[in-house]
Design a binder for these strands. Structure first.
Lengths: 145, 145
DNA sequence: CGATATTCCTAGTATTCCCATAGGATATTA
DNA sequence: TAATATCCTATGGGAATACTAGGAATATCG
């Protein structure tokens, strides 16, 4: 469950690459990050449409971050590639659910959405770009074996 | 993103039905909950293998909860239908990731996993079964329109 | 005993989504 | 003008999802 699509993982790695290297072409990012070049092109375009990166065409063109990595929250990246966090359709449609009274788990899903949104909002691209070993979480998983 | 599969939604609704009604056949649960009957059969079987429900065959058989609804955490339900929460493959494989140094987002994903696990562990089936309007979350979403 | 109602098991299928590839049009610059 | 980019559209393979179908095994009730 909650398997993150390759597209989102690629987007994140590409953005970290830009945060660290400043500016680069899609082809070079793809090579450095071991991502299918043509596929990455489309992803970068999507990130551009969402305002996360800017691009320049032509011979010495390429992509760069459209704003400081500190001010890019990871939830923006996820929204850019996958849209809004929405465990079930009815979470953000007020009380309109086709199931009516059968939709008793709705508040439960809203709680899940809030938990995920809250975490993704608390981490910035800059946090990922600095490669020091830091903890994102309060209740760390077992790492010790 | 994070779209919850129909299977998991069905499992939850079926379990709430059992928590409220005590015991029932797959066919009647399916009818009451508007779920494809044959599909639900398989799901209930899966829940049985995970130890969440018990079953009796034969004419007056059916399904019932294998333990109190208070002691069934929602994470158990999710694990029963979808397996472990695992945003990316390498989250629970210590530091062994095929990407090696390129896997800088690993700690980020572990943090997400922890956030989701923590929430799903904090809610019980009993919480869902009582139909009073209660809040599962600390930072509620906008509900006001 | 026999009809009925149930769970249990296996196989198949239609659809959808994801990931990637291909080819080229458009733009910029050295 | 040649080279190097981004940008745009279309397409295909593969996997997963959500069912569907048919029946075997099991228990109950008259």
């Amino acid at each position: 469950m909650f398997q993150v699509p390759a597209k989102t993982q690629y987007a994140i790695r590409a953005l970290v690459h830009l945060a660290r290297n400043g500016s680069d072409s899609a082809a070079r990012i793809a090579e450095a990050q071991k991502i299918s070049p043509k596929y990455l092109e489309g992803i970068l375009n999507q990130l551009k449409l969402s305002g996360l990166v800017a691009s320049d065409r032509g011979r010495s063109g390429g992509y760069r971050l459209a704003k400081d990595s500190e001010s890019i929250a990871m939830i923006e990246v996820v929204r850019a590639t996958e849209g809004e966090i929405r465990p079930v359709e009815c979470v953000d449609r007020a009380n309109l659910c086709a199931l009516g009274d059968l939709c008793m788990p709705r508040k439960f899903w809203i709680g899940l959405k809030d938990a995920v949104n809250s975490y993704l909002s608390s981490v910035s691209l800059a946090d990922l770009a600095e490669d020091s070993a830091f903890a994102f979480h309060a209740n760390p998983s077992d790492e010790g074996e």
